[in-house]
Design a protein around this nucleic acid. Sequence first.
RNA 1: GCUGAAGUGGUGGAAUUGGUAGACACGUUGGACUUAAAAUCCAAUGGCCUGUAAGGCCGUGCGGGUUCAAGUCCCGCCUUCAGUACCA
Length: 1044
Amino acid sequence: MTFRFRDIMKYHFNDIEAKWQKYWADNKTFKAVNNSNKPKYYVLDMFPYPSGAGLHVGHPLGYIASDIYARYKRHKGFNVLHPQGFDSFGLPAEQYAIQTGQHPAITTEANIKTYRRQLDQIGFSYDWSREVRTSDPNYYKWTQWIFIQLFESWYNLENDKAEAISDLIKRFSSEGNTNVNAICDDNVEMFSAENWNNFSSEKQQQILLQYRLTYLAETEVNWCPALGTVLANDEIVNGVSERGGHPVIRKKMTQWSMRISAYAERLLQGLETIDWPDSLKESQRNWIGKSVGAQVEFRVQSSEFRVSVFTTRPDTIFGASFMTLAPEHELVSKITTPEQKQEVDAYTEATTKRSERDRMADVKTISGVFTGAYAEHPFTKKPIPIWIGDYVLAGYGTGAVMSVPCGDQRDYDFAKHFGIDIPNIFEGVDISEEAFADKDNSIIANSDFINGMNYKKATKRVIYELEQIGQGEGKINYRLRDAVFSRQRYWGEPFPVYYVNGMPQMIDAKHLPIKLPEVEKYLPTETGEPPLGNATVWAWDAKKCAVVSNKLADDANEIYPLELNTMPGWAGSSQYFNRYMDPHNSEEIFSKEAINYWQQVDLYIGGSEHATGHLLYSRFWQKFMFDKGLVPHDEFAKKLINQGMILGTSALLFVFREMSSKGYDVKDTDLPDADDLNKIIVSGGFYDKYLEYNNLYDRYLNSKEEFKKFMIEKDISEEDWKPHKNFLDLLQNEIYNVNKKGRFIFDDDSFQTLEENIFKSNDLRVDLKHLDEITSDFVKISSFIKDTKYKEFKNAIFLNDEGQKVEDDLIKSKREVEKMSKSKYNVVSPDAICEQYGADSLRMYEMFLGPLEQAKPWNTAGITGVHSFLKKLWKLYFDDNGLKVNDAEPSKDNLKTLHKTIKKVEDDIKNFSFNTSVSTFMIAANELTAQKCTSKEILEPLLIVISPYAPHIAEELWSKLGHNTSISTASFPIFDASHLVESSKNYPISFNGKMRFTIELPLDMSKEDIEKAVLAHEKTQAQLQGREPKKVIVVPGKIVNIVS
RNA sequence: GCUGAAGUGGUGGAAUUGGUAGACACGUUGGACUUAAAAUCCAAUGGCCUGUAAGGCCGUGCGGGUUCAAGUCCCGCCUUCAGUACCA
């Protein structure tokens, strides 16, 4: 009996947390309503992709911060919307489906369940009744709906907004397109009203596609052969795919695109109106890449063609001594002379075959060829040779440049390399070594009508003159490209599209959602169609249409093919924040009432990695929806904060491995995935061979024939690589070929070395747990590596630097702090933390680690600090005899501690400085414990202050103090400054700026009296040692400084 | 190369307008309690010097400067991290 009584008085966080989590769920404590007398506040987290690995401690960091903010706002009397959901379409589930046949919906559902359990155990105050999942047909119905709206819109530059395509059609049929000022395809042809009305329906549709905000066009796309799909620019990192790290090549394909470029200027201007991190805004500015200059047209001699270039330096036009076109430029084949044709063809072919990564890896090499053609300088009429070179990018500007070697380093290098003229057009500048690119300090010379002018004046004049002769105009160019919107994948939103005579048609919105059909296989069809081509039945509630196989049949039983691509990952995340406002509405994307009530997100917290993806696309969709009158703001989030990454500590073992006949065994590594292979390459110590491998892999993917040729060139006979089932063998051959150090041939069970053994050092990342287990015992380490962890080292012999066998202590270990990832064995799961210390400890510790925005290493050991704080807090309320809180009158010190805490915590929350709040709580608990405070008047409001951070313990103690409703809406205590007023100050007394001692003096003492008191003090006299003070500075309430 | 952020004890980090540098924790050391461990509590903890104490000297990446006073402001460098990269 006694035991049980004592037991109740202890802080049993597991029971307490489970109890309150259930209470919140049962009572729908955090359900937000769409109208209220209270002011509204919308706090949003970036919703997670539910991966199979579950959450690690880095994931909840931002969620905890936003939860604290949401809970704080509730205490301050706001009606808070704090929803959560899942970005549940995506590649990993599909890759898993390809490997296992498991339907992605099943994997996704299971993963969501795990995520939900993990999130629930941390005690977030989400309104789960508003959960959205991007893969739910009731949700993606509206993603499809927005797609239709975009298709039915064009961008009118006269009003600077998106408008209905039906209006455009009216204008075309009454006035043609010559006076229409719209954002459209560069190559759109000009026509009159009469032309338009005589065009065939297909021709009209083709033209309209050039205006629509989402359109189908043949564009040069980033094709990832390994993933079998196209990728958007933001899905490529360092020239390889973001997911999986596969090579990417350029390819022309017919794809859906989003005309985000129409919004380039507004996306740029809008940044001024939102409170987002500067670094993130800067990323978006760079991505949009606005540059002001001129477009200039050069006539090609003895032909009808004109080469159009974009330049930011029209003032240097007289220095143009050649032109350079991108190898992909459409004029290349048209203007090349017969004599140069062979050389040009060889060059263009070679460039198109290079992957992005190759091109990037090899920036320094200057290459190019002369086309044989000449352009005519618009002013001097002198002939200018036209070259092609891969330093000119097809995707930027017009894909052609006027090359001014004296003013641009790349042009300079190119000219030097090929011996082209470098005329100097700058006054008093030496260009014998390098180009002079400083536009702000240049005076133009040798340039006819702009001689003696500076950059600004000359630019203006040149543009004027170009306009006079009709060969150019001022122009603003953006780097931002239209975003490719289709993917050749299964697990994504189907398009609401079918084709009539090859022209895309929207399926009527009343048939939405177009549900994702079932397929047998998640791979492309044998004819190379996307996975949806495998579908035999498309089920949707069609009134007039029936679906026959992959085709749509209308009343008259004509059959039309359906769009088989799916939408990219960012489609579903581009407006989810609005859908949360009215998530179950089946009639509208959201009701007018809901959007007018919630308006926009007040606080959005998430990772900076979405800077040029999700966050840019979402702003684009929001602006479009604003134009259509659907939303009241053209920016969706007022304030945004990027939480920093939590880094894990990896354990590295350094071993030296002998590669011998009994050594490196990689037999059963089947490698369809470059990601896996890269890992082995890197951990195998072949860092230097990484690139070679990639070339090889690219070659293989590009063309097996070409690969074969390459291998033969490298003197590796077909016999050597043909029997091998995977790329690793090829790699081995490549290594052999490159460094001649060793050769490894698959021989059923092991590799054989034909030449000398080679030694390589390896850093193997191991599970920290295991590292502790094996510590310095060599036998254990070696058996751990060979048997437990790394099968490929099964037969390895460990050597030290000198090549001797390692007997006991030569395997070194090291710790490294890096991004948490499964493959690095440095992941810490929140589950174990919650189990051992509780959710409140986890929440507090994550905040305590450091500033929210900053990257910081995780160290589980440190959690004892906040955990013992919570125990100490508990003890303020309970001792062995039970609840000790009473109605005692609070002391002055008690009140001072409480109000100091209220003030500091409130300021901290406003500044998102959550780490310092935790310190403040610790100080408060330490002080109140020392003061032996038992006063309810202090301890009750203290709980509300702590509640956003540690809601479970706060709820429990709150109820123990006699409340029978949740603490979550209790009013935040009002700070009363009068409790902090001091009557005296412990003045620091410094001598020549160095603090020596302190003196306690009344705060109302005058400057003169302070000076007298300080100078009279014995310690002052000791410091001065008889010297006369030269100057005494007294800052009342702050400091005294004596200069001697 | 360009852009942005940051460099403070053994570690994470504090110091809101220039005014006691190192709050709060972790770790370490010593002690109490305990058969023992865990848990808990107490004390010390930037470096160096003086036997201790009192005290002193040096200390916020480096070099200068402004100021009575600089982690904080100014100038010049170095390093690290992140983003971006032939953008005409």
